[in-house]
Simulated assay, not measured.
Amino acid sequence: MEIKKDDLTSTKIKQLLEDHLQSMTLHSPPESIHALDLDGLRQPEVTFWSVWEDEELLGCGAIKELAPDHGEVKSMKTSSVHIRKGVGRLMLDYIIAEARNRGYKRLSLETGSMEAFLPARLMYEKAGFHYCEPFADYVPDPNSMFMTLKL
C-alpha cells in the first residue's frame, strides 16, 4: 500500500468521495454531516492523501489545520471492497505522523454517534484518541461525537 498526496482530480477519487458523502446521508441528518466536498478539500488549510495498491484506490484521508498547533482529521474513507484490511489505520497513522511533523500539539476529529460509525470510533480509540467536547466551530450535537489526541 502506498500513500500519495492527492490533487483530487482523478475519477476514482471523486467517486470514493461521492460514496463517502452518500454514506453520510444514510446515517446522519443533513445538519449533522460535516464531511467536506471536493471544494472544501481543496482549501489551502487542507492536505489530502489517497492510499493505492498499484492502480487500485484503497482509501483516503485528510488533515485540516485549525491553528498552528491543532489539526483535524477529515475525509477518512476506505473503499468498500477493502474494509477491514488495515487501510483506515494506515491512513490514520500517516495523518498522526504528519501532525507531529507539523508540530501540532493536538489532533481532533468529529464522527457520527450512530452504530454505523462504531468501527471508526474503535479505530480512533485504539490509536489513542479520547472523547472530548466540541472543538473549533462545532457545537454539541447528539449525532456527533468528538475525539482528540494529544501529541
Rank of each mutant, 00 (worst) to 15 (best):
E2I: 12
D137H: 00
L36F: 10
M24E: 03
P44R: 01
D6F: 07
M1G: 10
D37V: 07
G128K: 03
S113N: 03
Y124D: 05
M123F: 00
R100T: 11
L21T: 02
S144E: 05
E72A: 08
D39G: 14
V73Y: 06
D137L: 08
G40H: 02
D137N: 10
R102Y: 07
L58Y: 01
I96P: 08
D69A: 11
P30I: 06
K77F: 12
R100W: 06
H20S: 14
L66D: 00
L38W: 05
I63A: 05
L58M: 14
E125G: 09
L122N: 14
D54L: 08
H27I: 09
R106D: 07
M147P: 11
Y138C: 13
H82K: 15
L58P: 05
P134V: 02
G86H: 10
K85A: 14
E110V: 09
K77V: 14
E53Y: 10
S108G: 05
P140Q: 12
L118V: 14
I13C: 14
F135P: 05
F48P: 04
F48H: 05
M1A: 15
K105D: 13
H70K: 11
F117M: 04
K14R: 05
M145L: 15
K64W: 08
E65D: 13
L8I: 06
Q43C: 11
T25L: 00
S108L: 06
A120W: 04
E133T: 08
D137F: 08
K12L: 13
F129H: 11
S10K: 03
A35S: 12
F48Q: 09
R106S: 00
M123P: 01
L57Y: 08
Q43N: 01
D137Q: 05
L109H: 01
I95W: 05
K14D: 03
I96M: 06
Y124P: 12
L90Y: 04
I3C: 13
A116S: 10
M145T: 15
M24I: 04
L109M: 09
S32E: 09
V46Y: 08
M123N: 07
L8R: 02
A120D: 00
K77W: 03
I33E: 04
S80N: 02
D54C: 13
S79T: 08
Y124M: 09
L16G: 01
S32V: 02
T25R: 04
K85D: 04
R100M: 13
A62S: 06
A116Q: 07
M76Q: 11
F135W: 08
W52N: 01
R100S: 10
A127E: 11
L16A: 03
Q15E: 11
L26M: 12
H27Q: 13
E45N: 13
Q22R: 02
H34D: 15
T25S: 10
M147K: 08
P68T: 10
E53N: 15
S80C: 11
D39A: 07
S108E: 13
D93L: 15
H27A: 05
K85P: 06
K150G: 11
V139I: 15
I96G: 00
F48S: 04
A62Y: 08
R102K: 01
I3V: 13
C132L: 07
M91S: 02
K150R: 15
G103F: 09
